[in-house]
Each structure stands twice: as C-alpha cells, then as structure tokens.
Amino acid sequence: MSPEMRVGRDGRLRPRRKGAVQPLAIAWMALVWCLFWRDFSVANALSGAVLGIGVQLAFPLPPLRMDGRLRIIGLLRLVWMFLSQMLVASVEVSTHVLRREHPKPAVVEVDLTSESDFVMTLVSLITTLIPGSVVVEARRSTHTLFIHVLDVGDDRGVEEFRQRTLGVEQYVLGIMTQPPKPEEVVR
C-alpha cells in the first residue's frame, strides 16, 4: 500500500511509487513463490523477494487506511462464521435447484455503518462468496452495497437479509481493535 497519491502527467490521480514497497508484502510474495516451486531454498526465497519488490514497484496500490491492531479471536470468529454460512447457504441453494422451485430474488440496498474502504471490500467479498447473494453495485462515496439475493421470499426476507449483512459487517469490524471515536477523544 503506497502511503500517498500523486497527480500523473495526464492529470489523473495515481498511487505514488515511492514508499509502495512493504516488507510484509515482500515476505508474503516470497512465501508464495516458494510454494509454487514446492521448494524452500534460500535461492528461491531470494528470487521471490526480488520479484515481490518488482511487482510492488510496477503496480503500486492506492493507500488503505487501517487503524488498530489485528485481533486473532475476531479473525477466527470471522473465518468460522464465513465457513459455516457458506456451507449452510450452499445447501439452501442446492435444495432450490433440486426442488424445481422458482426462487424469489430481490435487489437489496445495504448502507454500511463503517466508513472504511477496507471493511466495505471485505463485506462485499464475503457476501459475494456466500451462495445466494452477489454484490451488483457498490458506491464508495456513501459506502452502500446493492446486493442481488437469490431468494428472499417476501418483504420481511428483505429486511432480514439487510440485518444479516450488517451482522457480517460487525464480524469484519471485530478483526481489528477499533480506534476511539473523535468525540470520545475530546472528552
């Protein structure tokens, strides 16, 4: 994640190349490189690290604000929630397919409470991976997701789905320690 943006020659905003290389990302890409070769030798790790630096210089990512530390318990709870929901929902979709029922789909608007792009990305990834829901449109300015749901049944189902997605957001918020709100700092 590069720390800042710059205005390019064509007048468009681009991530700055300076400071885009991060040690954690280099370590991750070296690990992936070793896994690809199925061989953990020093030469492999070094060439993986060099490649990682090259990739980060060539494709600098836009800045991502992440305050707070990682909470392992929160992460485990998120992974558990995700895997169990994925399994339950695939069985639900499968019964729909096999019973020849026509599903009752809907497009539901979910206004996320968090202002973070990181949270919005994770929530969209999770809802799209869980069977029966796919993000059709995402608005970054208001942090709103529009989700196509395979089967809601009726208007009550729409509200239920909205609450469930907001619940997913709470799980995602739980993986980081939250920074204090501005008004709490003032007091």
Partner: peptide, 18 residues
C-alpha cells in the same frame, strides 16, 4: 420481490481513484 437499485441508478457517483 424488491428492487432498491433501479430508482437510484441514474444518481451515479464520481468515478476515479480516491
């Protein structure tokens, strides 16, 4: 059953990187 996107579809947000 419900379509909450079509009514706000024409209100696009500005494009581009942050």
């Amino acid at each position: 059953v419900a379509d909450e996107l079509s009514p706000v579809m024409d209100r696009e947000e500005p494009r581009g990187a942050p």
